[in-house]
Design a protein around this nucleic acid. Structure first.
Lengths: 223, 223
DNA sequence: TTAGAAATTTGATTTATATCAATGAAGCGG
DNA sequence: CCGCTTCATTGATATAAATCAAATTTCTAA
């Protein structure tokens, strides 16, 4: 069996490999190691629910996490898919407010859970930490801006055109249902929009896969 | 006529009174004063347009500024009303991307314009500056989250109920048209929603002013 | 390889809200 | 105080996308 010290060393090394902590001193890392916990989740498990008070800061180390809100008809509004390594919902911590959305694992994954009050007191003033935090926050602002642009300013077909323009050939293997959720559409509407774009000659489909025939034409549809 | 030094002193004092810079050293303030410019705007003037490259950081000192995007039918999607003292669109600067929205003055006002590249190089690492920046960014994230919750997850009547719940009696003098814009509704729909809520007995109107009769009832409508 | 399940497409209908049109009420300058 | 302009309300209609219901295609596992 390994001793506490060995655990500590392992954790310190793991922490050092995370962008947010890469510039911390050895002393800081050891202190940090004492306030974090590694947790594993299975596909489908919930990390936290919308409205839950937040006193933990989460960093996604492995797996894919979906952040979503639920509307009046119990439909999911997907805000974001998180891929490792990301800070999750740090805004809630910083403002001491409940989590604004639900986070659900889409694959098996691992989370680094940090005791937030202590982290705030001892690490938030650190320039590298705050700089990385700023980067993460602005990235999230960009995502939300984009959701607003896409979902409030564009109609169904324009949203699909934008998606194709931005995600190109990646969409091949992605389930239509998932694309529909990302775009805030029903699968039926998505299908009809794909058809319109096909008729315009901007894409063609061989079987299940799309080929983009006219990328600039797609852009025309949403801008 | 005042000398350069007197101008500098005036500017330094003005800067010191801004939360973001209140903890800077005298040396820093003098340096900062050399990269800022004070600009006045009239009601209706545009500070920047959506899509314009951003190399200035703006701080709103006086007046009210409206941030909005434009949808496919040329409708405004109001993202935010800025009141002094606020950072404006810092996200664009931090990520070196074009402004994501248009900013238009709703009253006469004053802006402090900062040369961003120099500011980033010389001030962004300052712990107080970055801390205030984090606060401002998280505040904006909250606004955007709220827009998404309101505009994507709630129907018209629920949005109005939420607005009444959160803004209470303030709405008295506010033009219906402005409320409608904030909620992303047409004045007609807003009027019909008010009527529904009136029939439910949650509010009453004497002439132009509303009285909230059942605040908890309002909450029930949107949660 | 094939049967059954799941995903996608297509068509018909419904729904919420925008739009269009008209009327009524309130605020304002003379 | 009056007429004019702006704002708010009400009613009728249009529209985009959701929902409901099949039909068809694709995937999967025996």
């Amino acid at each position: 069996m390994v001793s506490t010290n060995q655990f500590e060393t392992l954790m310190v090394n793991r922490l050092k490999s995370i962008f947010l902590f890469s510039h911390l001193s050895e002393t800081d890392l050891i202190h940090l190691a004492s306030i974090v916990k590694l947790r594993s989740f299975n596909n489908g498990e919930i990390l936290f629910y919308e409205g839950t008070p937040s006193d933990k800061l989460y960093i996604l180390l492995d797996g894919v996490l979906k952040g979503y809100k639920t509307d009046m008809k119990e439909n999911e509004i997907v805000l974001h898919y998180f891929y490792p390594v990301s800070l999750v919902a740090e805004m809630a911590n910083l403002h001491h407010i409940p989590f604004p959305a639900t986070a659900e694992f889409q694959t098996d994954g691992n989370i680094l859970e940090i005791d937030y009050p202590i982290f705030e007191r001892d690490f938030l003033k650190n320039p590298t930490v705050s700089f990385e935090l700023i980067k993460s926050l602005t990235q999230k602002l960009k995502y939300l801006e984009d959701i607003i642009t896409t979902r409030l300013a564009l109609d169904a077909t324009s949203r699909v055109a934008k998606f194709l323009y931005e995600n190109g050939d990646i969409s091949d293997s992605t389930k239509r249902h998932k694309i529909a959720t990302i775009l805030g559409l029903t699968p039926e509407t998505l299908s009809r929009s794909f058809k319109k774009i096909k008729i315009l000659g901007l894409i063609s489909d061989e079987g299940k896969n799309f080929t983009i025939l006219n990328r600039e034409g797609l852009k025309e549809l949403f801008s």
